[in-house]
Every structure is written in structure tokens, then in C-alpha cells.
């Protein structure tokens, strides 16, 4: 379990990193925290010709509030730093809750916020959180910058719209509306292990407790994180009832996810989990919104 030979570059500035990525083209692979890439390389499942390690690019590591009440998080910010940031916990408590489910503390000290999103593991928490929170992703290359919405970013398992010479530089989270509640629901075999099914949800209520918006992101049950459409279709403008939530949960489990059978669970069991977890997530998010 040693990696195949590779070239290693450790640029100390963003512009140097972008130069190197342009030079390497398809041969280059960005190394952020190494949480996922290094094990894949040790298994020789990933065999990049060259690694561009962003560990020394200090300018990519930051958490900044945005003027509209959201947050901007630099791609190299360690998960544990986001987890412990006071402003993040004030503005996006659901994000802190989500990060706590990523593996274990030691791994969160290495794993990076942007790295996990760019890696696009269908079973990972942060791509789903980016989708749920409607993140805006700043993509840089030597040629310039472009912005991609999270909903357009993921195109397959471990696949995103990033070109080889590009890197994900910043994740901007728009503010949550007032009276927004949220919930994180997951079933995994081990604590900190891969989810067999997981759901993150936000519900925003108006003054009369009618739903303004209901968002449900699913992960570990498809090729990439999924944003279910049924919840908002059914609930928008309505006072959420247990019956409506149950109907949504059943629909989403049947029609809006694609869990397969693997050694740890059958498709039937995992669809059942989606059903249960969507119901629990929406119910809890509504309760939270009312608080």
C-alpha cells in the first residue's frame, strides 16, 4: 500500500499554484488535506502523475463574513477550523453539525473544506452541505475566475466541472433567511463512518408558519449529492403537516434517490432509510424554524 511514483510540487502562492496547474494540464492533481486522495493513492486506485500540494498556499485558508450575512470560506481551511469558528456556528449552525459527522477529529484536522467539495465523493458531507446551502463556488485558473453554483458543480461520482488547470478557491455561502430551521440525519454503520443514507434539510417559515422554502439534500444515495424537488413543491406556501411530510418522504425515497445494493445494505433497506430520514429531517427542521 505505497503509492505509485509521482512528481510533487509545493507552491507557496496562489499564482505559482495556478501556473503549475496550467503547465501540468491533465497530469496534475491538486492535493489539499489528503483526507481522501492519499488513501486512494496508497491503494493505487488513484495514480496521478504529479501532485500540486496547496498546503503552503496560506492565502487560501480563511473564514470571512460577507456583508449580506453569509460567509466566505477559503478552500484550504481545515474542517476542524470551520467546525470551531464562532461566526460559522452563529450563522450556519447546521454546517457545524454536519462537519462533526465527518470521520473523526484527527481527520478533520487534516481534511479541508474546499478539498472535500472538489473531491466530490458521493458519500461526503460537505458537497451535500454546499448544495443544501446553495453555495457559490469561486473557480480560479491562470486565465481568470468563474463562479459556479453548487447545483451545477457536481456531475458524477468524484467528478465536477473543474478543468485540470482550475482549482476551487473559495466557497461563498449566502445567508440563511430568518426563521430557518435545519436538521442533519444520518445512518452509518460506525460512528464517523460512511453513511448508508444521509439527509440534510433546511425549512424557512413565514410569520404565519407557512413554508417559504424547504430544501432537502441527500447524500450517499446516488452518484453525487442530490437536492430533492418534491419537498418544496409540496410544502411551499403551506403549513407543514405530518401527513404532508410523510408523503414527501415516501416520494423522495421512491423517486428522488438512487441507492444501490452493497455489502452493507440492500437498496430496499437504504430507500427505507431515506424515507425515515427525510421525514425526521423535515420534522426537526420545521420545529427548529418555529423556535
Amino acid at each position: 500500500m505505497k503509492p505509485a511514483p509521482f512528481d510533487y510540487y509545493a507552491p507557496t502562492s496562489l499564482s505559482e499554484a495556478l501556473d503549475k496547474l496550467t503547465e501540468l494540464g491533465y497530469s496534475g492533481k491538486v492535493l489539499a488535506g489528503g483526507q481522501s486522495l492519499i488513501p486512494a493513492m496508497n491503494f493505487r486506485m488513484a495514480r496521478p502523475t504529479a501532485l500540486v500540494d496547496l498546503g503552503k498556499v496560506k492565502e487560501l485558508s480563511y473564514i470571512k463574513p460577507t456583508a449580506d450575512g453569509g460567509m466566505a470560506i477559503g478552500t484550504m481551511t481545515r474542517d476542524s477550523v470551520v467546525e470551531e469558528d464562532l461566526l460559522v456556528s452563529e450563522r450556519f449552525p447546521i454546517l457545524v453539525k454536519t462537519i462533526k459527522h465527518i470521520a473523526h477529529k484527527q481527520i478533520r484536522n487534516r481534511g479541508t473544506f474546499g478539498g472535500a467539495i472538489a473531491h466530490a465523493d458521493p458519500a461526503a458531507q460537505l458537497p451535500a452541505a454546499a448544495l443544501l446551502l446553495d453555495a457559490n463556488l469561486k473557480v480560479l485558473s491562470k486565465a481568470g475566475e468563474r463562479w459556479v453554483k453548487a447545483v451545477d458543480f457536481f456531475i458524477g461520482p468524484f467528478m465536477t466541472v473543474l478543468e485540470p488547470e482550475e482549482l476551487l478557491a473559495e466557497v461563498v455561502l449566502p445567508p440563511l433567511a430568518p426563521r430557518t430551521g435545519a436538521s442533519y440525519q444520518q445512518v452509518s454503520r460506525q460512528k464517523g463512518g460512511y453513511a448508508q443514507a444521509a439527509v440534510i434539510s433546511t425549512v424557512t417559515l413565514d410569520g404565519a408558519d407557512r413554508v417559504k422554502e424547504a430544501r432537502v439534500a441527500l447524500f450517499s444515495v446516488g452518484e453525487y449529492p442530490l437536492l430533492a424537488s418534491k419537498p418544496n413543491q409540496v410544502l411551499a406556501g403551506q403549513v407543514p403537516t405530518a401527513e404532508a411530510i410523510e408523503e414527501i418522504a415516501a416520494y423522495v425515497a421512491k423517486n428522488e434517490c438512487d441507492p444501490g445494493t452493497d455489502i452493507h445494505g440492500t437498496e430496499e433497506y437504504r430507500r427505507n432509510l431515506v424515507h425515515v430520514l427525510v421525514r425526521r429531517a423535515l420534522t426537526e427542521a420545521v420545529q427548529q424554524a418555529k423556535k
Binding site: 491503494f43 454503520r189 460506525q190 460512528k191 464517523g192 463512518g193 460512511y194 455489502i263 452493507h264
Partner: peptide, 23 residues
Amino acid sequence: VYDDYGQLVTASFMDYLFPQATD
């Protein structure tokens, strides 16, 4: 778990799960 061709499907701790201290 072996598959139908005698390949061990659970050849890493990603697939072969054991109870951790936290479990």
C-alpha cells in the same frame, strides 16, 4: 465477504467494518 468468483470484497477497513472505541 467473498463474491461469486472468490474475490474478497472486504479487503480494507473501508469495507470490513469493526466496532471502534466510539461505537
